[in-house]
Amino acid sequence: MQSFNHTLNCVGGLHARPAGVIVNAAKQFSSDILIRKLSAEGAKEADAKRLISLMSLGARKGETITFYINGPDEAAAAEKLLAVCRETVG
């Protein structure tokens, strides 16, 4: 299991475009990839390989999402997703 946090810095939060970038990166790996958001209403979880699941997190700018990656290529997936979050998603 690999895990890391990312605080969103993109205007509009995790809307279609940044969510799509994460989905496309996640789909390159066979590991299960879960994204969790903690908020006042409780925790919400999404499948990182499913666009509308990610969008339903309603993650806003300034909020932190946590990736949980589990599977045979988890180390490579974590490295790739962390890079995508920092460089493309914002």
Binding site: G12, H15, L51, I52, S53, M55, S56, G58
Partner: peptide, 13 residues
């Protein structure tokens, strides 16, 4: 499945 906070995107299963 969701309506975005910004109300412009509608996800349907």
């Amino acid at each position: 499945e969701s309506v975005s906070d910004s109300r412009h995107a509608y996800a349907i299963s």
